[in-house]
Amino acid sequence: MNKTIVMMVFAFTMHTHLPAQTISENQVKASVSRLDHATTIKDYQQLASDFEREAGTLKIQWLPYYYAAYCNAKTGWLNEEDPDNIEPFANKAEEQIRKAQSLLDTASQKKELSEIYCVLSMLNRARVFMNPSTYGPKYGPAASNFIRLALKLNPENPRALFLEGWEKYTTPKMWGGDKAKAKELLETARQKLNGESSSGVNPHWGRKDVDGILRD
């Protein structure tokens, strides 16, 4: 009898989609590895929520906030075709990334700050998607400027290179778009991403995004 209960509880624990319930650095690590396989809005929202909770507990660490913000900004991107459903995610992402930024020593943690600027760029870009003709003039330049800042701090940052490539690829020629230059940037980003460790908790997303455009 007792054994049955134990088995049930055990099976039950296995069944829940979270491998561990105790919030620790290990859980952040587990969430990050789930992020590596995330594709849908649902995945990103689940992760945004997990990272936010982890951030709330591990208060002093920038990474959970960073990831929560990234997941919300990414949700904004994935909602490009549903523009009425972007603003809350972009706002949430901004709130979280500012917290992440405040936890950094911006004088020494240049590489980390560069990653933060990438998310800031993404969330401003998401705001452009709400309606490019009205929000574009305000948030578009902000999105590009954050890429510039990210590259200034870390010219090797593949995510910043990806974002710059994405922008060059999607912008009309008139406003500075250049598909050939975009491909170059994305190839460089791909090289840098291949040189990065694809595990661990440090930011390493981007491969799927780069491949997505280069396959076009």
């Binding site: 989609h17 319930q21 919030i23 929202q45 507990t57």
Partner: peptide, 19 residues
């Protein structure tokens, strides 16, 4: 409510609700 976060206060225990 999708993706609600449930935490036991003052601990490290928490989960996210499913869809």
């Amino acid at each position: 409510v999708n993706n609600a976060s449930i935490v036991i206060k003052e601990t490290n225990v928490g989960v996210t609700a499913d869809s």
